[in-house]
Simulated assay, not measured.
Amino acid sequence: MATTRRTAGAKVWLWRWRRNPLRRPSDLLEAWVVLATWVLVLLAGVLAGRAAAGAVEYGLAERGARAHPVAAVLAENAAVTSRAVPEYGNGSVWAKVRWTAAGTPHEGLVAVEPGLKAGSPVTVWTDQRGDLVSRPATAEQMRLQAGLVGSLVGLGTASGVLVCGWLVRGRLERQRLEAWDKEWETVGPRWRRTIG
């Protein structure tokens, strides 16, 4: 029993790179476009992601370096009221506090544990002028935020490069089809005469 070699549907890898009489210049150009697109997708995605992550981490570290903990006291009882802080998810409530920074008394609302009495000490975070700022991100939070932003920017950049490569490849395909149409206009009438 002789074995037959399957030829229908067999895929020839890297056919655009191999020399053969059927390869058109546009096939080789398309191979270079695909290769360049994938190289740029990897490079641009990684570089943009790393740059964005570094910028976010630097910005968070800089913001954290400008925030200073200051001792403050509650100006009112911290009761569970309509001023609950749902975004913290730990049952915190907004309460008025007072503190002194650079010799100037300040007052503002901060999230505190419910049930604290007026006069209880709390820590608030302020900038150089003594205005309230949010608590600086921890090292773990900075890494997480930088990683998320870097991943999103990297994926977005890589997707943009991939779409550009896809558009160039589509343009090459349209040019190839137009060339086939022109060639068919020349060959078609002669071919029909030989059949008929």
Rank of each mutant, 00 (worst) to 15 (best):
W17R: 13
A84K: 07
W32C: 03
W94H: 02
H68A: 11
G49Y: 08
A51E: 09
W180M: 13
Y88Q: 10
V97K: 04
R6I: 15
R174G: 02
L35I: 12
A52W: 06
V187E: 12
L144I: 05
R63M: 06
R174K: 12
V161Q: 07
A8S: 11
A101D: 05
L29K: 08
W191L: 14
W17M: 13
L116K: 13
V41C: 11
L42Y: 15
S26D: 12
R23T: 13
V80M: 08
V110A: 00
V56T: 13
A53R: 09
V34A: 06
A44M: 14
E140Q: 14
V153R: 00
R16Y: 01
L14M: 15
P121E: 15
W191R: 10
R174S: 10
L162A: 14
A52V: 06
P114R: 08
G108Q: 06
L29I: 15
G115L: 10
S151N: 08
T194Y: 05
R16D: 06
V46M: 12
L162S: 13
G54I: 07
I195N: 05
V97M: 08
G170A: 14
W184I: 02
E185Y: 02
K117F: 02
L152K: 00
A44E: 12
V41F: 04
D127C: 04
T3K: 12
G150A: 03
V93R: 02
W32F: 10
R171H: 07
W32R: 10
W38C: 13
A61P: 04
W184Y: 07
P114F: 04
S92R: 12
D131W: 01
E30P: 03
P86I: 12
I195F: 05
L28W: 00
C164A: 15
G130V: 01
Q145A: 10
A111M: 00
V93P: 05
R5P: 07
R192L: 11
L47K: 12
M1P: 10
S151H: 05
G154F: 11
G91S: 04
E76L: 06
V187I: 15
V112H: 02
G196N: 09
S92K: 09
G59A: 08
A137P: 06
V12T: 14
N90V: 04
V39E: 06
L60K: 05
M1C: 03
R190A: 14
V124D: 05
T3E: 13
R6S: 15
V163H: 09
K117A: 14
L14N: 15
L29E: 04
A53K: 09
L109K: 00
A2Y: 08
W32M: 06
L60F: 07
A36G: 06
E62F: 02
V97Y: 02
S159F: 14
P189L: 01
L60H: 06
V46N: 15
T157K: 01
N90H: 07
D131Q: 13
G91Y: 01
V168N: 03
T7W: 14
